[in-house]
Design a protein around this nucleic acid. Structure first.
Lengths: 351, 351
DNA sequence: TTGAAAGCGTTACCAT
DNA sequence: ATGGTAACGCTTTCAA
């Protein structure tokens, strides 16, 4: 069936009794054409089952109608959702997505940047790998998503705001003893989310001391280890803020294992609202990022960039999803009074 | 910087003082060339920073060195891992991956099949959407992964075997009262995994009755609902087999919520060994699929198919990862004697 | 061993 | 309103 050689525009032209130019015109309605001719051409296209050659189009126009997407780790549940949304959004605009996974490795990311660019993608969307040195470059326009990289145009949600509402939620519940699972440090500091959290807490008069901040990667395992570590070296916190849901869920498993009840003894807030977060026990209070909106902005910006200079979009807002992992600090269990309202704080021992 | 127009092979040829043909020959070492010339060409390539135009190559050779990958749902944690492995495996062979998500919708899948084929991918790898009617077709060679679709060449792990070892594990622990979360029914029946489970149980003399088999999709939510449903309508089982980890983890949350201890009162086994399974509480005993191996086979088969007729590879083996969610039936809690060794079975009531 | 030149299937300019 | 035709950048046959 599919062994017969390709049907070309010339075939269609012949069948319709017109020139290839005319066929091209009607196909792309790039120039006015008599209704009669139009109909003949369309009929011919139908009859022959003509499909334009993408390669030829790309060669001729210099546009591949493909975009590259470089993700740090498809195994981190936040990214599949993002990738899904980007793919969908791209498709509705006629773009296909070339996917690459950098495994959070800047070197591999660099390789991807090169190969995808050479492959002729019109634009590259990249969620920069964690160790990315500030200069992200390629031979095609670049858009950063979610994480900043130098002055690459960035589409992201307002993570600082997200961190703020997470912290504020816990403050509102009366918590005063905080610990933080910070994820990896970026640019020699802590990420925006955590910055938002810490800033809010400081302004509220309950700064988090260094020993209560655990830096690591974003993995489930890191969440476990981080929670264990915090429990051992700096117990007494009643609220735990995690830089993402993966960390939070890892922490949840460690806490539970250590016999700490959530939210009874420790309230826990995550970030991202990945699917699992709704179904953990307890379900996870978390900051939701609007991946759909991010995807839309990214594609928008990308396509603009392909044609004209771009305008940086506003950060996407985040919202707090309050679920079962957070509770007022006045719940059964040792109640360490906040340092401000009440001195004489007594650490919470595991059990 | 990148505004200067493309460096073509002609530029290189001129710089090296040779013809484009020669340049092509050295670049693809497709024909013998004098070392001297070779060196000159290479130098010119370096000097000019020449990058071949992929579009031109594709047009000329009819090969895009790209493959399409259609995934049913990137949000299901099993697939990102598979996609990652496929992308990696493809890349090492010089292939790029065009990703599409069918959202488990046959219609959308069909659309993808069309667009990707027209986009000129050399071959399409597809994990068929659940409702896929048996005839999966496209204008390019097709490889099915993980799920069968008509007589499309299939790469998959031996799911029946996986189901067998899962069931056998529970039998070995002494369980006799089984329930099954079966996932969606395919081709008017239950999937291979479940078939493997049920077959094994039947052969052991402990057939599972209809009311103990819950069909649904593969989601976390379905796992929850399924477990709840089974608990209400057909309590008394001590062992629960799930068609995948997502279902199992959903079930775990429902069981826990219902006050049923795992593995104390009910042993639970999943399928896939997704990352979360190691970190749930309790951790999940599950059947691991070797995605790496599947990816390798798929790419191998795909590339063969692009050139010559293919030979179907053997199903990839699965292995059981025993973790914390399974225990001998002789654990604290009501002990329903197996029907064969011991009649007079007493159902387990929740609590 | 190297080069000239004919395409691959489109698009788009320039005529008509 | 249409058609002829020259590119687009590469591979590959055929000659030299």
């Amino acid at each position: 069936m599919q062994t017969r050689s390709r049907i070309t525009m010339a075939d269609v032209a012949r069948e319709a009794g017109v020139s290839t130019a005319t066929v091209s015109f009607v196909l792309n309605n790039t120039k006015a054409v008599t209704p009669a001719v139009q109909a003949r051409v369309e009929a011919a296209v139908q009859a022959l089952g003509y499909r334009p050659s993408h390669a030829a189009q790309a060669l001729r126009t210099g546009r591949s109608l493909a975009l590259g997407l470089i993700i740090p780790d498809l195994t981190n549940p936040f990214f599949p959702k993002l990738a899904q949304d980007i793919e969908q959004e791209a498709r509705t605009r006629g773009y296909a997505v070339l996917l690459a996974d950098s495994h959070d490795d800047p070197a591999l990311q660099q390789e991807h940047l090169g190969t995808l660019a050479q492959r002729g993608v019109d634009v590259l969307l990249v969620v920069p790998a964690v160790g990315t040195d500030d200069t992200l470059t390629a031979d095609v326009p670049l858009i950063a998503i979610d994480r900043a990289a130098g002055d690459t145009p960035l589409v992201h949600s307002d993570k600082r705001q997200g961190g703020q509402i997470a912290a504020q939620h816990l403050l509102d519940l009366g918590h005063r003893e905080f610990a933080v699972l910070a994820g990896p440090s970026r640019h020699g500091g802590v990420g925006e989310r955590v910055r938002g959290m810490l800033g809010t807490l400081e302004r509220a008069g309950v700064p988090v001391r260094k020993g209560r901040i655990y830096e690591s990667d974003y993995s489930l395992l890191a969440g476990r280890e981080g929670a264990r570590h915090l429990l051992q070296t700096a117990p007494g916190f009643t609220a735990l803020l995690a830089a993402n849901d993966t960390l939070a869920l890892g922490a949840l498993s460690a806490l539970t294992e250590a016999g700490i009840t959530v939210p009874g003894q420790v309230s826990l807030v995550g970030f991202d609202d990945i699917p699992w977060s709704a179904l953990s026990a307890p379900s996870l209070t978390t900051v939701r990022q609007d991946t759909r909106q991010m995807a839309r902005q990214a594609i928008e910006l990308a396509l603009q960039t392909v044609n004209a200079p771009q305008v940086a979009p506003l950060p996407v807002g985040t919202t707090l999803t309050v679920r079962g992992s957070t509770a007022p600090v006045t719940t059964p269990g040792p109640l360490p009074p906040g340092p401000l309202p009440d001195p004489g704080h007594r650490p919470l021992e595991n059990a």
